[in-house]
Design a binder for these strands. Structure first.
Lengths: 124, 124
DNA sequence: CCCGCATAGGTTGTTTTACTACCTATATCC
DNA sequence: GGATATAGGTAGTAAAACAACCTATGCGGG
Protein backbone atom coordinates (compact mmCIF):
# COMPACT_ATOMS: atom_id res chain seq x y z
CA UNK A 1 0.00 0.00 0.00
CA UNK A 2 1.34 2.94 -1.28
CA UNK A 3 1.41 6.64 -1.14
CA UNK A 4 2.19 6.94 2.53
CA UNK A 5 4.96 9.39 1.73
CA UNK A 6 2.68 11.58 -0.37
CA UNK A 7 -0.67 12.59 1.02
CA UNK A 8 -1.08 16.36 0.89
CA UNK A 9 1.65 18.91 0.57
CA UNK A 10 0.50 22.37 1.63
CA UNK A 11 3.94 23.94 1.08
CA UNK A 12 2.88 27.55 1.81
CA UNK A 13 2.19 27.40 5.53
CA UNK A 14 0.20 30.61 5.49
CA UNK A 15 -3.45 29.70 5.55
CA UNK A 16 -3.71 28.95 9.27
CA UNK A 17 -5.01 32.47 9.88
CA UNK A 18 -8.17 31.75 7.91
CA UNK A 19 -9.98 30.55 11.02
CA UNK A 20 -13.37 32.16 10.82
CA UNK A 21 -13.11 33.35 7.23
CA UNK A 22 -12.99 30.17 5.18
CA UNK A 23 -16.73 29.78 4.78
CA UNK A 24 -17.27 33.14 3.13
CA UNK A 25 -14.50 32.37 0.64
CA UNK A 26 -16.01 29.03 -0.27
CA UNK A 27 -19.42 30.62 -0.75
CA UNK A 28 -17.89 33.36 -2.90
CA UNK A 29 -16.15 30.74 -5.03
CA UNK A 30 -19.58 29.37 -5.98
CA UNK A 31 -21.20 32.75 -6.52
CA UNK A 32 -20.75 32.87 -10.29
CA UNK A 33 -21.68 29.27 -11.01
CA UNK A 34 -21.35 25.77 -9.56
CA UNK A 35 -18.07 23.93 -9.11
CA UNK A 36 -17.11 20.51 -7.79
CA UNK A 37 -15.11 20.28 -4.55
CA UNK A 38 -11.69 19.87 -6.05
CA UNK A 39 -12.35 22.78 -8.42
CA UNK A 40 -13.28 24.96 -5.44
CA UNK A 41 -9.99 24.06 -3.80
CA UNK A 42 -8.08 24.88 -7.00
CA UNK A 43 -9.97 28.10 -7.61
CA UNK A 44 -9.13 29.23 -4.09
CA UNK A 45 -5.48 28.42 -4.63
CA UNK A 46 -5.23 30.12 -8.00
CA UNK A 47 -7.44 33.06 -7.14
CA UNK A 48 -5.35 33.82 -4.07
CA UNK A 49 -2.07 33.67 -5.93
CA UNK A 50 -1.11 30.49 -4.07
CA UNK A 51 -1.74 31.99 -0.64
CA UNK A 52 -4.68 29.77 0.24
CA UNK A 53 -3.42 26.39 -0.90
CA UNK A 54 -5.55 24.43 1.51
CA UNK A 55 -5.26 20.69 2.19
CA UNK A 56 -8.23 18.52 1.28
CA UNK A 57 -8.70 17.84 5.00
CA UNK A 58 -9.67 21.48 5.32
CA UNK A 59 -11.72 21.98 2.17
CA UNK A 60 -13.90 18.85 2.05
CA UNK A 61 -15.07 18.98 5.67
CA UNK A 62 -15.84 22.68 5.25
CA UNK A 63 -17.96 21.96 2.18
CA UNK A 64 -19.77 19.19 4.07
CA UNK A 65 -20.47 21.66 6.86
CA UNK A 66 -21.84 24.26 4.46
CA UNK A 67 -24.03 21.64 2.81
CA UNK A 68 -25.26 20.38 6.18
CA UNK A 69 -26.23 23.96 7.01
CA UNK A 70 -28.14 24.34 3.74
CA UNK A 71 -25.90 27.07 2.35
CA UNK A 72 -24.73 25.00 -0.62
CA UNK A 73 -26.28 22.00 -2.35
CA UNK A 74 -24.30 19.15 -3.92
CA UNK A 75 -25.10 16.62 -6.63
CA UNK A 76 -23.11 13.59 -7.74
CA UNK A 77 -22.01 13.07 -11.30
CA UNK A 78 -19.40 11.04 -13.14
CA UNK A 79 -16.94 12.53 -15.62
CA UNK A 80 -14.41 10.20 -17.27
CA UNK A 81 -15.02 7.59 -14.62
CA UNK A 82 -14.24 10.07 -11.84
CA UNK A 83 -16.85 10.80 -9.20
CA UNK A 84 -17.66 14.44 -8.83
CA UNK A 85 -19.77 16.26 -6.29
CA UNK A 86 -20.82 19.55 -7.81
CA UNK A 87 -21.96 22.28 -5.46
CA UNK A 88 -24.14 25.28 -6.09
CA UNK A 89 -25.07 28.18 -3.84
CA UNK A 90 -28.56 27.98 -2.33
CA UNK A 91 -30.74 31.02 -1.69
CA UNK A 92 -29.78 30.85 1.97
CA UNK A 93 -26.15 30.63 0.89
CA UNK A 94 -26.48 33.79 -1.17
CA UNK A 95 -28.00 35.63 1.74
CA UNK A 96 -25.24 34.39 4.01
CA UNK A 97 -22.60 35.41 1.49
CA UNK A 98 -24.06 38.89 1.29
CA UNK A 99 -24.17 39.23 5.08
CA UNK A 100 -20.69 37.78 5.58
CA UNK A 101 -19.24 40.09 2.97
CA UNK A 102 -20.52 43.05 4.97
CA UNK A 103 -19.15 41.49 8.14
CA UNK A 104 -15.76 41.12 6.53
CA UNK A 105 -15.67 44.74 5.45
CA UNK A 106 -16.44 45.97 8.95
CA UNK A 107 -14.08 43.50 10.58
CA UNK A 108 -11.18 44.29 8.26
CA UNK A 109 -11.75 48.03 8.51
CA UNK A 110 -11.68 47.90 12.30
CA UNK A 111 -8.45 45.91 12.47
CA UNK A 112 -6.79 48.00 9.78
CA UNK A 113 -7.71 51.18 11.61
CA UNK A 114 -6.17 49.90 14.84
CA UNK A 115 -3.06 48.58 13.14
CA UNK A 116 -2.34 51.29 10.63
CA UNK A 117 -3.61 54.51 12.13
CA UNK A 118 -2.78 53.57 15.70
CA UNK A 119 -6.23 54.70 16.74
CA UNK A 120 -5.82 53.73 20.37
CA UNK A 121 -7.05 55.54 23.44
CA UNK A 122 -4.33 57.31 25.39
CA UNK A 123 -1.84 55.09 27.15
CA UNK A 124 -2.41 56.92 30.40
CA UNK B 1 -21.08 34.16 47.01
CA UNK B 2 -22.58 36.90 45.21
CA UNK B 3 -22.18 38.13 41.74
CA UNK B 4 -23.19 34.89 40.13
CA UNK B 5 -25.51 36.72 37.83
CA UNK B 6 -22.81 39.05 36.61
CA UNK B 7 -19.47 37.67 35.46
CA UNK B 8 -18.72 38.92 31.97
CA UNK B 9 -21.13 40.53 29.57
CA UNK B 10 -19.76 40.59 26.03
CA UNK B 11 -23.00 42.07 24.64
CA UNK B 12 -21.78 42.47 21.05
CA UNK B 13 -21.32 38.86 19.97
CA UNK B 14 -19.02 39.78 17.15
CA UNK B 15 -15.49 39.09 18.23
CA UNK B 16 -15.52 35.35 17.59
CA UNK B 17 -14.02 35.91 14.16
CA UNK B 18 -10.82 37.26 15.67
CA UNK B 19 -9.29 33.81 15.73
CA UNK B 20 -5.77 34.28 14.48
CA UNK B 21 -5.67 38.05 14.68
CA UNK B 22 -5.96 38.81 18.37
CA UNK B 23 -2.24 38.70 19.10
CA UNK B 24 -1.32 41.42 16.65
CA UNK B 25 -4.00 43.68 18.13
CA UNK B 26 -2.72 43.15 21.66
CA UNK B 27 0.83 43.89 20.55
CA UNK B 28 -0.34 47.03 18.75
CA UNK B 29 -2.18 48.17 21.90
CA UNK B 30 1.18 48.24 23.68
CA UNK B 31 3.11 49.85 20.86
CA UNK B 32 2.90 53.42 22.15
CA UNK B 33 3.55 52.69 25.80
CA UNK B 34 2.85 50.06 28.47
CA UNK B 35 -0.60 49.25 29.83
CA UNK B 36 -1.92 46.83 32.41
CA UNK B 37 -4.11 43.94 31.30
CA UNK B 38 -7.46 45.47 32.06
CA UNK B 39 -6.42 48.67 30.30
CA UNK B 40 -5.47 46.65 27.22
CA UNK B 41 -8.92 45.07 27.23
CA UNK B 42 -10.58 48.49 27.57
CA UNK B 43 -8.39 50.11 24.94
CA UNK B 44 -9.33 47.34 22.51
CA UNK B 45 -13.01 47.85 23.26
CA UNK B 46 -12.90 51.63 22.95
CA UNK B 47 -10.51 51.73 20.02
CA UNK B 48 -12.71 49.34 18.05
CA UNK B 49 -15.87 51.28 18.70
CA UNK B 50 -17.22 48.49 20.88
CA UNK B 51 -16.67 45.79 18.25
CA UNK B 52 -13.98 43.91 20.14
CA UNK B 53 -15.45 43.83 23.63
CA UNK B 54 -13.63 40.69 24.65
CA UNK B 55 -14.27 38.69 27.82
CA UNK B 56 -11.46 38.43 30.33
CA UNK B 57 -11.27 34.72 29.56
CA UNK B 58 -10.00 35.71 26.15
CA UNK B 59 -7.74 38.63 27.00
CA UNK B 60 -5.84 37.39 30.04
CA UNK B 61 -4.86 33.99 28.62
CA UNK B 62 -3.76 35.72 25.41
CA UNK B 63 -1.54 38.11 27.36
CA UNK B 64 -0.08 35.17 29.30
CA UNK B 65 0.68 33.46 26.02
CA UNK B 66 2.40 36.54 24.59
CA UNK B 67 4.44 36.89 27.75
CA UNK B 68 5.38 33.21 27.73
CA UNK B 69 6.62 33.69 24.16
CA UNK B 70 8.72 36.70 25.16
CA UNK B 71 6.80 39.19 23.03
CA UNK B 72 5.64 41.25 26.00
CA UNK B 73 7.03 41.60 29.53
CA UNK B 74 4.90 42.13 32.63
CA UNK B 75 5.64 43.62 36.03
CA UNK B 76 3.46 43.69 39.13
CA UNK B 77 2.58 46.86 40.91
CA UNK B 78 -0.08 48.02 43.34
CA UNK B 79 -2.23 51.08 42.79
CA UNK B 80 -4.82 51.96 45.45
CA UNK B 81 -4.64 48.48 46.87
CA UNK B 82 -5.36 46.91 43.48
CA UNK B 83 -2.86 44.54 41.92
CA UNK B 84 -1.80 45.50 38.46
CA UNK B 85 0.28 43.63 35.95
CA UNK B 86 1.70 46.16 33.53
CA UNK B 87 2.93 44.92 30.19
CA UNK B 88 5.40 46.44 27.79
CA UNK B 89 6.42 45.37 24.31
CA UNK B 90 9.79 43.61 24.11
CA UNK B 91 12.20 43.97 21.20
CA UNK B 92 11.00 40.60 19.92
CA UNK B 93 7.44 41.82 20.31
CA UNK B 94 8.14 44.88 18.20
CA UNK B 95 9.66 42.74 15.47
CA UNK B 96 6.68 40.41 15.61
CA UNK B 97 4.27 43.34 15.46
CA UNK B 98 6.03 44.69 12.39
CA UNK B 99 5.96 41.30 10.68
CA UNK B 100 2.35 40.58 11.63
CA UNK B 101 1.24 43.97 10.38
CA UNK B 102 2.61 43.07 6.97
CA UNK B 103 0.95 39.66 7.18
CA UNK B 104 -2.37 41.29 7.93
CA UNK B 105 -2.08 43.62 4.95
CA UNK B 106 -1.43 40.75 2.58
CA UNK B 107 -4.07 38.53 4.14
CA UNK B 108 -6.75 41.21 4.11
CA UNK B 109 -5.89 42.28 0.57
CA UNK B 110 -6.19 38.71 -0.70
CA UNK B 111 -9.57 38.09 0.91
CA UNK B 112 -10.90 41.48 -0.11
CA UNK B 113 -9.84 40.85 -3.69
CA UNK B 114 -11.64 37.53 -3.77
CA UNK B 115 -14.76 38.88 -2.09
CA UNK B 116 -15.11 42.26 -3.71
CA UNK B 117 -13.66 41.97 -7.18
CA UNK B 118 -14.76 38.39 -7.70
CA UNK B 119 -11.26 37.58 -8.93
CA UNK B 120 -11.95 33.88 -9.41
CA UNK B 121 -10.73 31.60 -12.17
CA UNK B 122 -13.39 30.67 -14.71
CA UNK B 123 -16.16 28.43 -13.43
CA UNK B 124 -15.52 26.04 -16.27
C1' DC C 1 -24.26 50.33 56.52
C1' DC C 2 -24.97 47.66 52.65
C1' DC C 3 -25.60 46.85 47.65
C1' DG C 4 -24.15 47.10 43.17
C1' DC C 5 -20.89 48.48 39.87
C1' DA C 6 -16.42 49.38 37.87
C1' DT C 7 -11.92 48.02 38.23
C1' DA C 8 -8.35 44.36 38.41
C1' DG C 9 -6.86 39.86 38.38
C1' DG C 10 -7.52 35.18 37.34
C1' DT C 11 -9.14 29.71 36.06
C1' DT C 12 -11.70 25.62 34.05
C1' DG C 13 -13.96 23.34 30.67
C1' DT C 14 -16.22 23.41 26.12
C1' DT C 15 -16.59 24.10 21.27
C1' DT C 16 -15.13 25.20 16.91
C1' DT C 17 -11.91 24.99 13.30
C1' DA C 18 -8.16 24.03 10.64
C1' DC C 19 -4.47 20.93 10.11
C1' DT C 20 -1.73 16.53 9.76
C1' DA C 21 -1.76 12.19 8.25
C1' DC C 22 -3.80 8.83 6.41
C1' DC C 23 -6.79 6.17 2.64
C1' DT C 24 -9.16 4.81 -2.26
C1' DA C 25 -9.50 5.29 -7.16
C1' DT C 26 -8.93 6.74 -12.18
C1' DA C 27 -6.57 8.87 -16.21
C1' DT C 28 -2.42 10.41 -18.28
C1' DC C 29 2.41 10.93 -19.23
C1' DC C 30 7.05 9.03 -19.19
C1' DG D 1 5.38 0.06 -14.44
C1' DG D 2 5.74 4.31 -11.81
C1' DA D 3 4.81 9.09 -10.84
C1' DT D 4 1.65 12.82 -10.93
C1' DA D 5 -2.71 15.17 -11.30
C1' DT D 6 -7.35 14.68 -10.54
C1' DA D 7 -11.23 13.48 -7.40
C1' DG D 8 -13.14 11.97 -3.30
C1' DG D 9 -12.83 11.14 1.49
C1' DT D 10 -11.80 10.13 7.06
C1' DA D 11 -9.63 10.13 11.89
C1' DG D 12 -7.20 12.28 15.25
C1' DT D 13 -4.84 16.39 17.08
C1' DA D 14 -3.83 21.18 18.47
C1' DA D 15 -4.93 25.82 19.10
C1' DA D 16 -7.71 29.54 20.04
C1' DA D 17 -11.65 31.95 21.66
C1' DC D 18 -15.45 31.63 24.50
C1' DA D 19 -18.79 30.90 28.51
C1' DA D 20 -19.02 30.52 33.11
C1' DC D 21 -17.14 30.75 37.03
C1' DC D 22 -14.14 32.86 41.11
C1' DT D 23 -11.56 36.57 44.38
C1' DA D 24 -10.86 41.22 45.80
C1' DT D 25 -10.88 46.48 46.34
C1' DG D 26 -12.76 51.26 45.98
C1' DC D 27 -16.58 54.15 45.40
C1' DG D 28 -21.23 55.99 44.98
C1' DG D 29 -26.24 55.76 46.02
C1' DG D 30 -29.86 54.66 48.91
Amino acid sequence: MGNRENGDRPTKADAQALKGHLDVLLLAALEHGPRHGYAVKEALREGSGGRFDLPTGTVYPALHRLERDGLIAGTWSTVDGRRRRTYRLTAAGQRRLHADRGEWRAFAATITKLLEAGAWPATT
